[in-house]
Design a protein around this nucleic acid. Structure first.
Lengths: 155, 155
DNA sequence: GTTCAAGTTGAAGTTCACTTGAGGTCAAGA
DNA sequence: TCTTGACCTCAAGTGAACTTCAACTTGAAC
């Protein structure tokens, strides 16, 4: 019957804009067959693949990283339970790191309330990593860990 | 003696690139006087203002929001202890929200390990907000809260 | 057979926070 | 005085992840 879904249907069901789906296809993240007239027709499995893309994106992966992760699956198939276990275990560390970095920031803020110091070199808040704290030859102060520095836009 | 600092000095002490300082000036975040020959000369207080900018940026504020926050201070002065207490209290909520959103994501992941469902409508991981869960007329599933969706680049 | 919402393409535009480049000027030490 | 590193302006470029546009075609319903 309606085995293959047109782009509007997939857009609606996945929550991605049709233009995003075309973009993902151009980036090799998803695939589609074509109707006689050249319109895209998606298999149902693309929905799960899109769910995976969304989940990975939520974790903070770039599209390039997501593509790489999908490419590592044999046949480019959508991840099954075993894949998911392996992959999600990897993501957990990433999330834990992000959470810890934010907590450090919040706790630094807590200590700073009422002090108002905001020292570029020593304040835990304006210099959360305590980098370059006392070294005049360091390139500069106040660098954040990569995960906090480039959380990247999701959607 | 050297009351007013040239841009390179401020860049080195603050950890911002000179080009960033010029950009901030163009956006009305900081100000500078000029030497006879037209070169920028910064007052020392700009360093604290930059520390504030960095801290705000770390919390996830956009430059526009930071500018607004600075503009709300009388005379555009650098925040003092009372300002800082008020402002940081506001930020704390923001950080707490971010942390909670990430924890929800991580816990959803935890539940999902081994299940591999990744349902667009019900899986806590690909649809962390459980939005549009059962409503076919909703615009789409799987939207993240704004703070997670647009963490914005920090530096 | 007609209609028109939904689909197609490629190129260009958007946003944010900057950086880079070209072409020239300033200022401090020898 | 000379040199040279630091500084100036303005325009354009960057990168990620898309969106928008214009001009055109498809296909399902009536």
């Amino acid at each position: 019957m309606h085995d293959r879904l047109p782009v509007g249907e997939v857009a609606h069901r996945s929550g991605f804009a049709a233009s995003a789906l075309r973009y993902y296809e151009s980036q090799g993240l998803i695939a589609a067959t074509r109707s006689a007239g050249g319109q895209r027709r998606y298999e149902r499995s693309v929905l799960r693949r899109l769910a995976f893309i969304r989940a990975a994106s939520n974790v903070g992966l770039s599209l390039e990283e997501i593509r790489a992760e999908l490419d590592r699956l044999p046949d480019g198939r959508t991840p099954n339970r075993a894949d998911w276990e392996r992959i999600s275990h990897h993501w957990r560390g990433r999330l834990d790191e992000q959470i810890k970095a934010l907590q450090r920031l919040r706790d630094g803020l807590e200590n700073c309330i009422g002090c108002g110091c905001l020292s570029l070199k020593t304040c835990a808040f304006s210099n959360p990593d305590d980098q370059a704290a006392e070294d005049d030859r360091a390139p500069g102060a106040a660098y954040l860990p990569p995960l906090l520095r480039k959380p990247h836009p999701v959607r």
